[in-house]
Structure formats: structure tokens, C-alpha cells
Simulated scan of single mutants.
Amino acid sequence: MSVLDDDLVCVEHALASHPDFGDAVLSTVKAAEFYRFAVDLLCERSGAVDRLATGIRDESGEIPLAVTEDPLVRVTLDEAVSRLERGFVDEAAWSEVATMLRLVGDALAAHGAQAAPTGAGISGGRAVRVAPDREVWLCGSGAGGLTPLGRTFLDVFERDFLRGVPGELLDPAQEYARQLDTGFAALHALLPELAASVTAHYVGVGVVDVRTEGETFLAGNVGRIPGVVFFSPNRMARPWRFAETALHEGLHLKLFDIQRSASVFTAPEQLDDGPKVKVPWLKWASMVAPNEWSLDRALGAFHVYAHMALFRQALRTRTTPELRERFGEPEAEDPPSLYRFGAERARYLGAEILRSGGALTGSGREFVSWLLESVDRVEGVEGGVRV
């Protein structure tokens, strides 16, 4: 290992292991505990919910991890807890929680206690290997029949992901599954420790055809389907191109889980009406791509760009002949690739977010400063300086 790669290993380890902002084991455990606590909280207030939850618990009395990771379960619990915090849960809200727990119980009874409830209803048993030791479910369009949870998932996909844009969730062909497996393998070969810490936040993957006018859809996820990323086939055919996109989208999933336990903003409910960050590389604004971002959107982009600085340097120094033989040549001039601008844009966004002053908690300022330091360390490696 060269001196420069040894420095990159140190940066990668830091990004993957920070106890509050990097360690996937800690952040996913904290997220699971939040949802277990949410179920217990609701059980204290509803006998019907308590009875349904009892049928889901494992032998130790815990809600299984596959349930606390389930995207539809998470959204339902988030909304119920939010209503509780405001002091009011109406009959319709209790009905939504009860219905979700009943459908989850039916899924576990049909597919086994360790099955992912929604995944079992939408994947037909298909999976993608996102890490050497981790598989996640691969969404299907339901041509062979769907469970009630699967139908609910498709409804949420239409309403909250597509939001009126022409498109569809594709029934993944064998070639798509192979491309996904290969692309995730490329990411792990390049950045093994960081990739493991990011893919731990994936619970599902889908292949989509989204037809946006004047723009090329690459990949995306949405808060109402947490843990699931939808990729366009045009981003899957080349392993290195896909590896960048899988890292990008996985970082959004990771930030969601980080914010479950680390308070970043002092008043997150007021961010939409708060200060905005001007985005100089977006010359024109559109509904899809406004050129002024709220602080939470700026933070999400900053989090990605800070890691893309490392991705860029790893492509330069770690693509050995063996990796080129296995995954092909990296596309250094690929126009959609964000890693070329990672350090520059991370520094700009980080500085703008820090200028927001009281909008950030102490933990939030630490988070942003820590990521800026990691960018400086990567840039020091690139310049041949041992940091």
C-alpha cells in the first residue's frame, strides 16, 4: 500500500466509523430502537394496537428488525408519533396503524418471521446483493400478483415518487439484476469500508422508467419510501457509473438514519420558511431543480459532495488492472458524474450552512465541520501532502 493510499484508508475509515455520523451499525440500531419505541408508545394508548403488535413480536418480545426497517411501517409510525407529539391522534390515524400492523402480521405468517413484510409482497423473492454479506429486495411490478402490502407500495410509488411524472416501476429482467449486483460489487471493490457503511441503509431497490421532459432521470429516493432507491436502466449498464450513483443515493438514506438520533437543526419544522442557500451551478430554476435550497436540502447535497471527493480520489488511485479487467475503465469525462465537482461544491455548501448560525445545533455544527475536514484531508492526499 502506498503512502497516499494509506492516507485515503484513514479518511475512508473516519467517514465510515464516526460514532454519531458514520458508523452504520450504531445509526441503524438507533433507528430500529426509535421505531420499536414508537410501537411501544402507541401500544400504551391503544388496546387494539397492543394486541396486533403482540402477534408480531419475536420470542424475546421485540419487534423484528425486518419490521422496523420496513418503509411502509416506518412512514405509518412516523405519522402516528408526529400526531401524538401534537397532542392529537384521531380515529383514522389509529385505524392506519392497526391496518398496517395487521398486514405486517399476515406477511410474517405467510413468509416467515424474518421476512421483510413489504419486500415479500413486492419482490417475488428476488434480491440484489448490495454488499458481500447483505441482500435487499428487488421491487417488481406485480405481474404475478401482489399482496395487500405490495399494492400499497405501488400506490405510494405512484403518488409520492412519480408525483404525476410519466413513468413506471419495471419488472426487473435478469440482466437488470446482474447489472445491479455488478455495480454494487464495483463500489465495494473501490471503497470497501465506506460502501459497507452506506449499503447497510438500503432495504430495497427498484428499476424505473421515468420520462422527464428535458432532463435525464438517473436515480432517486423519496422520504415516504425510506430505505428504497429507484435506478434508471441508463445508469446501470456501466459499473463505475452505477457505483457513483449507488453511493450518492445511499448517502441520502444514511443521512435520514443519522438524523433519527443526531439532532442537526434547532427547529427542523421551520426549515421550509427559513434561510436559503443560493446554488451557483444551477443557473436557472425549475420546479424539479430550484436554484435556492432550504438548509436541509443543502445539507443532503453537502453530505453527498463531501463523500464524492473521496470517491474521485479513489477512482484515480485504486483502479488496479484487476479492477479494470473486472469492471471496465472509469469514465472520467462522464458529464453526469458529480464526483468531479465534489470538493469544490462541498466546501461552498458547508460554508453556507455554517453561516446559518442559530439554525444548527451544536451537533449539527460538529457534523458539518467534520465533513469539511474530511474534504481537506482528501484534497491534501491529492496534492501529495500527508495530512
Score class of each variant (00 low, 15 high):
S286H: 14
P268I: 14
P226V: 08
A246C: 12
G274L: 04
A267G: 03
F242M: 14
A186Q: 08
L247R: 13
Y202E: 05
A196R: 12
T212D: 12
T245S: 12
L247T: 03
P290R: 13
F217D: 12
F230I: 11
L218A: 07
E269F: 10
V228R: 07
R260L: 14
L253S: 02
V229A: 15
T245P: 08
S286V: 13
E269M: 08
A285Y: 03
H248Y: 07
S197E: 03
V208P: 01
P268H: 13
R235I: 06
S197T: 10
K254I: 02
M287I: 10
F242T: 06
F256M: 05
A200G: 07
H201P: 08
E244T: 09
Q259T: 04
F184P: 01
K283R: 07
P290K: 13
E292Q: 14
P268W: 06
N291A: 05
S261F: 04
N221K: 10
H252K: 06
P192W: 15
R211K: 09
E213R: 06
N221A: 14
G204I: 07
L194I: 05
E213P: 03
D257F: 10
V205D: 05
L282Y: 05
T199M: 08
L295K: 12
P226W: 07
P192G: 00
A219W: 00
T199A: 15
V228T: 08
Y202T: 01
F230G: 01
A285K: 07
V288S: 07
H188G: 12
G250P: 03
V288H: 13
R224G: 00
